[in-house]
Design a protein around this nucleic acid. Structure first.
Lengths: 349, 349
DNA sequence: GTGAAAGCGCTAACAG
DNA sequence: CTGTTAGCGCTTTCAC
């Protein structure tokens, strides 16, 4: 890179000074209209805006941040670059960072298994002069790492953590409400014998999703047959096993709600092996809307988290707690709504 | 954000000036040791380095970029935030950007279908003052968009394009070599009757992967039975159909190579429906190592692209062509190696 | 309402 | 080998 001037485009970029000259005002005035601040006479504002147009002026973010003295350096900690999550999370996070003039520093904790490595990584990020960090799942459920982060004195925002942290800040979805909602969707489609596959016992979301299912059933006066609830572990295989069980029953369910998409795909495979057509003979829904949901056939009706939005909000939250003198426990645990994704695995009964 | 000072950490960050004072030298000297440039007397260098340590000094990237006048603004164009690709691509890209002090501006072309929208987006990014753009697949195969980008005068680097662009710059993998390699892997495991599922006809990678398969078979003196080559379209369903065909044959294959993971999953489903155990009775391999490859059971042996690395190199390439006066057609099309991911769907025969 | 001056933290260019 | 002088493009502070 031997470029001699910044932002080397084909045309040298206009600066605030040129705009000021052209409009016959001071840089300060231009800056004020840029930041839509306080009093600027309507007529001068117009002149300035014309000049901006004419010069195709764009403020230089670097200079702005440097002079302004705001502009945070935010770390994003994750542990699996091929996670479906990550792309979207980065999109939302990056977008907000750009808007607000912050800088995102990504930190890959993938290889982290042993304590020593964790320590090294934490050392690295706390030495990097980051203002705060956003922690993506599943690290946001990893108490070992979280506590070390806290010890290092880093401000953190957790994405979809196990529990809204007592004294922390997080953004998550309401698993209970989401599970309730998709169960209700099944019920609204005339299903009464609905089976459920529970997620991994070591993840808190499993319990919450089960609770949501239970709630919806109860509210509709539907009983939950013990035979129609199977323990899974969020893997395809466990879903398949659960399906085998359901479809071998003398009175099989007309619909199955699996706590994630992988298990739903497993249930589907089992159904097909039993000669059952989906959705004609049995309806299936999942949770998460990961890649497999649209890769399988028929495509899965499921529920999706607003992941990009979560990243976006996480940046906001972090910026807020960083600027607050501390305290103010309000709105520290943001809960976002999910969306129902209707595809091809549910049929009215 | 009402922070009054930049990089608001708990401790105010040290500046180059403080380091200079502490070491009893000028800022320039500190800057020189920071940039490990030219001649600095060993003894002064040491003094400076001590001061840096003592103050826990980190250079401010913003200031560096602003003063240095380098620092590019790079756009990354993609069209599917939940693409498996994207997370990793962003990781590599972002990492290199940070190292080099560049800035990444992400551009989502997801909703882009009609010409008008494309125009609007292109307008937006060419107005944004970007120095250049990196184009992720599958947009990198979209001639309509590519030509408009070119028209707008934007410098581009294509990731995994249809063909190495005649007059462009790209980073890709060698599909032929990769397909050849995994076919050879199957052959090395004693397979002779190997079936192949071709990818979508409208994607160039399909042809290349087929060629690689063919090459390996020919080199090993193995014939390719017409009955053992089926046309697919990169979907799960098409893989399943191909599998149905293969396993209904009087003399079914002992191994199947599907041109992507989704189709491989479909083949697996067909095998299981035919009562065939994988990998005991039949081996299966895929291509891409997307999420489904480790979600299915047994987990899929496949081939994986070094996606993060591709992003990293794309930034390098872009920076290079931006600084070159133009010309210099060498090394404009970087081809990276793939990795074989051995999992549980291949058995020695 | 608007402007002038003084930097943000760093590096380039030229002296010495 | 090292220091001085000028900024990078913007915002802040404080006058007017």
């Amino acid at each position: 890179m031997k470029t001699s001037s910044p932002r080397t485009g084909r045309k040298q970029h206009a600066t605030i000074r040129e705009v000021a000259e052209m409009a016959g005002v001071s840089q300060m005035t231009v800056s004020r209209v840029l930041n839509r601040r306080e009093s600027v006479k309507e007529s001068t504002r117009e002149k300035v805006e014309e000049a901006i147009q004419a010069l195709n002026y764009r403020p230089n973010l670097l200079a702005r941040s440097l002079a302004g003295g705001k502009s945070l350096f935010i770390g994003l900690i994750f542990n699996n670059p091929s996670n479906n999550y990550l792309g979207e999370l980065l999109v939302g996070t990056l977008n907000r960072c750009r808007e607000a003039g912050h800088h995102l520093v990504i930190e890959d904790f993938s290889t982290t298994a042993r304590d020593k490595e964790i320590d090294a990584l934490i050392e690295r990020i706390s030495g990097a002069g980051l203002d705060g960090v956003i922690v993506a799942p599943p690290i946001s459920e990893d108490e070992a790492i979280l506590s070390k982060l806290r010890q290092a004195g880093l401000k953190t925002v957790l994405i979809a953590p196990r529990e809204p942290p007592a004294n922390g800040v997080s953004v998550s979805i309401d698993d209970v409400a989401a599970a309730d909602r998709i169960t209700q969707y099944l019920i609204d489609h005339g299903h009464k014998r609905i089976a459920f596959v529970i997620g991994a016992t070591d993840q808190s979301s499993s319990r919450r999703r089960y609770r949501g299912f239970d709630l919806a059933m109860a509210r509709n006066g539907l009983s939950v047959d013990d035979n129609l609830v199977q323990q899974g572990d969020y893997t395809y295989r466990s879903g398949m096993l659960a399906g085998e069980h359901f479809f071998s029953l003398p009175d099989p369910p007309t619909a199955v709600f699996a706590s994630n998409d992988d298990m739903a795909a497993g249930v589907l495979a089992a159904a097909q092996r039993h000669g059952l057509k989906v959705p004609d003979n049995v309806s299936i829904v999942g949770f998460d809307d990961t890649a497999i949901a649209s890769a399988m056939w028929p495509q899965l009706t499921t529920v999706r988290q607003p992941i990009a939005e979560m990243g976006y909000q996480a940046v906001n939250l972090l910026a807020r707690i960083l600027s607050e003198s501390e305290a103010k426990a309000s709105e520290r645990n943001l809960v976002l709504d999910v969306a129902l994704v209707e595809r091809d695995t549910v049929r009215r009964r």
